[in-house]
Design a protein around this nucleic acid. Structure first.
Lengths: 213, 213
DNA sequence: TAGATTGTTAATCGATTAACAATC
DNA sequence: TAGATTGTTAATCGATTAACAATC
């Protein structure tokens, strides 16, 4: 649309997959269109917000009608990068690593884990579902070979920084960090943290405040 | 300090456990104090922000010295509710449910999963680690019996709303929702969503923007 | 004292919400 | 037409950052 990238805020970016999920459900009901106020109601948000968020896709709604569902869904998938296969390596094959492999089809759209690696010695033939588990020592050659740019990090937090240093050295460009460690990386590497404990903090706090009202 | 609860912002609330983790690590090195600029550096943030965040605990730092570590850690744990046992039921015993049970000691401080439940028929004696798995039909009597207020929801998203309705009916007060469903609950029930796909969206977007610079 | 740090208050920044014109 | 909706622009709200006085 323009030569300059519209900068899109992180809050917006986090709402888009929520809309996408909802739109798919609505489409499955066989409906052709949906309006912003309707979406807003379902996700407990402001209609203006929804309209503004959806505008990043470049899709235009129709007055009195709303948005064409197939077009909007397609555009959102495109925008979020969910229609490409973004291949990733899983590093750390504990329970969280396993869970992510099993969840990827349903919840982790946009990401495709193609192989797993463990820091401990791996018996040959080990796997999670259909994903083979390899010894960490093969990472260095497999990253450039398969042109992998994304690592999903689920190692224990004590080992997270050391593992990260290796990953960076091997050419990884983005790390989805599910450990509680704060990772130190050079500027050209992206880290996305998912600290589960944060949500527990918020939950417990809300619960206590609720109680005392 | 005051009869009125200072309202604390969610961003602050999410940063507190990050500080807490860091402070514990620093304490393990045997140091007695730490300054805000030092914390700020380690977590890549503004020192003013750190000072303001920490002020919610009521702990006062010392000029030229910083904060007394044991005192600050204790206050943060207190504030976050991590030093009580907040007992919770796990509902859904798929891979994500299992992962959360195994992770709770290390990553999910403040939450204690005391039993697990599955929507499918459960063979007696089934367990995850030391946590027994029960049939869903026992939930109704066990929630009031054990006075459980928190449920950790890891059922498939298609079943999430229906399961939530039951939980609410049984008296659950807070739901940590790890499914991708948007839950509809009455006002007196708290829902905390942890949609993993959001983080993937942000990661992929950052990666693409990085590439084209 | 000089310099570093806390902690408060003010300024800035950015996101959300509200208002409203345009459209069908 | 009347009414509902989009989409833009303005107002509001809240969080972060900057400035600075107080302190040791």
């Amino acid at each position: 649309m323009s030569l300059f990238k519209k900068k899109i805020s992180e809050p917006t970016l986090r709402r888009l997959p929520v809309y996408l999920n909802l739109l798919r459900r609505i489409q499955q009901e066989g409906r052709p269109t949906v309006s912003a106020p309707e979406i807003a109601k379902q996700v407990n948000q402001d209609a203006s917000q929804v309209i503004k968020d959806l505008s990043v896709t470049g899709i235009k709604g129709k007055t009195r009608v709303g948005y064409h569902l197939p077009e909007l869904i397609e555009a959102l998938e495109q925008f979020l990068g969910f229609n490409r296969t973004n291949e990733a390596f899983l590093v750390g094959t504990g329970p969280m690593g396993k869970a992510l492999v099993f969840l990827q089809k349903k919840q982790l759209q946009g990401l495709k884990i193609v192989a797993a690696f463990d820091l401990r010695p791996v018996k040959s033939g080990n796997s999670i579902g259909h994903i083979n588990i390899h010894d960490f020592k093969y990472l260095e050659e497999l990253i450039p070979k398969l042109n992998i740019r994304i690592a999903v990090l689920t190692v224990p937090s004590e080992l997270a920084q050391k593992t990260t240093d290796s990953l960076v050295g091997f050419g990884i460009r983005a790390i989805w960090n599910l450990s509680s460690a704060i990772l130190d990386v050079p500027d050209h590497v992206i880290v996305q943290n998912t600290p589960l404990v944060d949500d527990i903090s918020v939950l417990l706090h809300k619960l206590r405040n609720h109680d005392s009202e």
